[in-house]
Simulated assay, not measured.
Amino acid sequence: MTTVAEPRSFTFLGPEGTFTEAALLRVPEAAAGIRVPSSNAASALAKVRAGDAYAAMLPIENSVEGGVSATLDAIATGPELRILNEVVVPVSFVLVAPDGVALQDIRRVGTHPHAWAQTRNWFQAFLPAAVHVPTTSTAAAAYELRGSSPAFHAAVCAPSVAEQTGLRVLAAGIEDNVGAVTRFILVGRPGELPAPTGADKTTVAIPLPEDRPGALMAILEQFASRGVNLSRIESRPTGQFLGHYFFSVDADGHIADARVADALRGLHRVSPGLRFLGSYPRADRQPPAVAAHNSDGAFREAGDWVTALLEGRA
């Protein structure tokens, strides 16, 4: 008798129709699984930590606005989690409103802060007096407009949400940067790591051990001396006291790569509070350029040479 596995539960930054759900639907297992919206990054990761969801899809970086602080902070604190995958989604926005609301009637606009930042030039040109009302997501703003007493006159959301809600599109393609994308990460509990593909990324959170001249350089040297390229580095406050930070870093490569593993060993000596957040396939599938002296083979040969010296064979 064949046993059919129960579909896994995945959570995402909701409600339905967000760019985050669009990213989740690009993961085949999630598209066939149970999808549960969460109101924010902290609640999504709480579901994962409690075992109520297998994994959570969250935005981590935007090509216009940079890192998403809520996600960066949520995965760097609390019980450890692992990034399993990443997805990059093109971002385009429309301005929607209920029937009867014209462009000249709009004074307050609801949307996520990142969406507002990516459309500010359009609003400066066409609705300079409009005030932004922050919402938890672009889709949440659109759904609120369908309520009896919304806090704003119009919303900025994805074209798909406009179709789902039946709201009237007053303007389309209002993003300031055509071709902008948002990077999302699928986060689960610690376990077996995704196998190296040759085109991978490793994410770590590195506390600054002490505030002194050269402290950041000591961290960066661990990567530079092994030929590990950094595709993203951001400082985030720990919240403990003023001037206390950790660095959120994306490095090219997998922990199974000798150069990356050696860099992490060095980092752990410099900053013992280092948090490994995962090694996973890059969304663009582009392998990094690795110099011959930083290849796995070069690390093996160097290790064999030292072993031979210790054993008196060289």
Score class of each variant (00 low, 15 high):
Thr3Arg: 13
Ala5Pro: 02
Pro7Gln: 09
Arg8Phe: 11
Phe10Val: 05
Thr11Ala: 11
Leu13Gln: 06
Pro15Asn: 04
Glu16Cys: 08
Phe19Leu: 15
Glu21Trp: 04
Ala22Met: 14
Ala23Glu: 02
Leu24Cys: 06
Arg26Pro: 00
Ile34Glu: 12
Ile34Phe: 00
Ser38Glu: 08
Ala42Val: 13
Ala42Gly: 02
Ser43Met: 11
Leu45Cys: 05
Val48Asp: 00
Ala50Trp: 00
Asp52Cys: 01
Asp52Val: 00
Ala55Leu: 04
Ala56Ser: 07
Met57Ser: 12
Leu58Asn: 03
Ile60Leu: 12
Ile60Phe: 08
Asp73Glu: 14
Ile75Tyr: 02
Leu84Ala: 00
Val89Ser: 03
Val89Ala: 04
Pro90Lys: 09
Ser92Arg: 15
Phe93Val: 01
Val94Asn: 03
Val96Pro: 02
Asp99Leu: 10
Gly100Met: 13
Ala102Trp: 04
Ile106Glu: 08
Arg107Met: 09
Gly110His: 06
Ala117Leu: 15
Asn121Pro: 00
Leu127Cys: 03
Val131Tyr: 07
Pro134Met: 09
Ser148Arg: 15
His153Asn: 14
Ala154Gly: 05
Ala155Trp: 06
Val161Gly: 01
Thr165Lys: 09
Ala172Lys: 07
Asp176Tyr: 03
Asn177Pro: 00
Val178Phe: 03
Ala180Ser: 15
Ala180Val: 09
Arg183Ala: 01
Arg183His: 08
Arg189Phe: 01
Pro190Tyr: 05
Ala195Glu: 14
Ala199Val: 05
Lys201Ala: 15
Thr203Met: 14
Thr203Ser: 14
Ala205Glu: 04
Ile206Asn: 06
Pro207Met: 12
Gly214Ser: 07
Leu216Ser: 04
Ile219Arg: 10
Gln222Phe: 03
Ala224Val: 10
Arg226Asp: 02
Arg226Ala: 06
Val228Asn: 07
Val228Glu: 03
Ser231Val: 11
Ser231His: 06
Pro237Lys: 07
Gly239Glu: 02
Gln240Trp: 08
Phe241His: 14
Leu242Asn: 10
Tyr245His: 14
Tyr245Leu: 15
Val249Cys: 10
His254Cys: 07
Ala256Tyr: 01
Asp257Glu: 09
Val260Gly: 04
Asp262Thr: 13
Asp262Ser: 15
Ser271Val: 06
Pro272Lys: 08
Gly273Asn: 06
Gly278Pro: 02
Gly278Ser: 08
Pro281Cys: 06
Arg282Thr: 08
Pro287Met: 03
Ala289Asp: 13
His293Phe: 06
Asn294Gly: 00
Asn294Ala: 11
Arg300Cys: 08
Ala302Thr: 08
Ala302Leu: 08
Gly303Leu: 10
Val306Phe: 13
Leu309Tyr: 12
Leu310Lys: 15
Arg313Val: 02
Ala314Val: 09
Ala314Tyr: 09
